[in-house]
Computed example of a mutant assay.
Amino acid sequence: MPRHIACLTFDFDTWSSFAVRGMTTPTPISRGEFGLVGAKRILALMAKYGIRTTWFVPGIVIDTYPEACAEIVAAGHEIAHHGYTHELPAAMDAEREEREMLRAIECIRRLTGRAPRGYRSAAWDLSDATLDLLLKHGFDYESSMMGHDHQPYFVRQGDVVSADEPMRFGKQTRLVELPISWSLDDHPHFEFLRTKSFLMPGLQAADGVLKNFTDDFVYMTREETDWGALTYTFHPYVVGRGHRMLLLERLILALQEMGASFMAMEDLADEWLGRQDARAAAQ
């Protein structure tokens, strides 16, 4: 029987993604704080359909809104690592990145009673040191890369890449990659963002985005005749707006009609590893 999985994930950044861009005036901060409103709506919707999800939460958000984060835990959802601030790992040196990583681990441990199993970097931009740090500090999975769309894979460490030479591949690690895609992220589709250096137009109609989201799942069911998993990324301050909440519910209903199994990321990683073990034992 074919098995097709949908992971609904939420990057609960609130105002942290604006602050690291220097946008700390009242309006962008309030825009991020709308994520608290969106989070309540999302939790109610997930409870309605009995779906367990994964929330990637910066440590600074846990420290600022402990009650809101505790509600996510109380509802049975997974809390995963999303840095302490929302600064890009590639913009930090290795020492600072590790300090921030450890600080956020302690925030999550304090909130949930255990260390996080999964990691997602800010803006999906890993540094040269990130994978070493994830392995050093015991993470089981990572979700910032795009080497497949329907299949997890083991992360390579130590690739050597230059513009004018063939790539030299590094070694395979035990870290599981649960891949993502900008096309399955609500932020670039919907968010209008203007700074001195760039413009993100956003503000697309929800129906067109919903068709993208559902068509990718349709394609997976055709391409992966045995087993496949697709990860969707949402931000509560983005998807929490009314017409986008309707999109999210329609997505759930459409995926249910196609036989989707909904799963948190840590459970997906466990299932995929179990399949690898079973395959190895059968050889």
Rank of each mutant, 00 (worst) to 15 (best):
R3F: 10
R3I: 13
L8R: 04
L8F: 11
T9G: 04
F10V: 06
W15D: 09
S16G: 03
S17F: 04
V20F: 08
V20I: 11
T25P: 03
P28C: 03
P28I: 05
I29E: 05
S30N: 14
E33S: 01
L36T: 00
A39G: 13
I42R: 02
L45K: 05
A47V: 08
I51Y: 09
T54V: 02
F56S: 04
P58I: 09
G59R: 07
I60Q: 13
V61I: 15
V61R: 07
I62H: 05
Y65A: 08
Y65R: 01
Y65K: 04
P66Y: 01
A68H: 03
C69L: 04
A70V: 00
I72D: 03
V73M: 01
V73K: 03
E78T: 10
A80Y: 00
H81M: 09
H81L: 09
H81Y: 07
H82A: 03
H82L: 09
E87W: 00
P89C: 04
D93C: 11
A94M: 01
A94D: 13
E98G: 02
M101W: 02
M101K: 09
I105T: 08
E106G: 06
E106T: 13
L111A: 01
T112E: 00
R114A: 15
R117A: 14
A122R: 01
A123F: 11
D128G: 13
T130C: 07
T130P: 03
L134Q: 01
D140E: 15
S143V: 06
S144F: 04
M146R: 14
M146G: 05
M146Q: 12
D149Y: 08
P152I: 05
Y153E: 05
Y153R: 10
R156V: 10
Q157V: 11
G158N: 06
D159F: 10
V161L: 14
D164G: 14
D164L: 14
E165T: 14
M167V: 15
F169E: 14
F169D: 11
K171Y: 11
Q172I: 14
T173E: 02
L175I: 10
L178G: 04
P179R: 06
P179I: 02
S181P: 09
L184Y: 07
P188G: 08
P188M: 03
P188L: 00
L193T: 00
L193E: 11
M200E: 12
G202W: 00
G202Y: 05
Q204L: 13
A206V: 08
G208C: 10
T214V: 15
T214C: 05
T221N: 10
T221D: 00
R222T: 08
E223S: 15
E223C: 14
E224Q: 15
E224G: 10
D226N: 13
W227N: 03
A229E: 03
T231G: 03
T233Q: 01
Y237W: 14
V239I: 15
R241V: 11
M245A: 00
L248E: 05
R250C: 00
L251R: 04
I252M: 02
L255V: 02
Q256H: 13
M258D: 04
M258C: 00
S261N: 12
S261I: 13
A264H: 02
M265L: 15
D267Y: 06
E271C: 00
L273C: 14
G274S: 09
R275T: 08
R275S: 07
Q276E: 12
Q276F: 07
A278R: 13
R279Y: 11
Q283I: 12
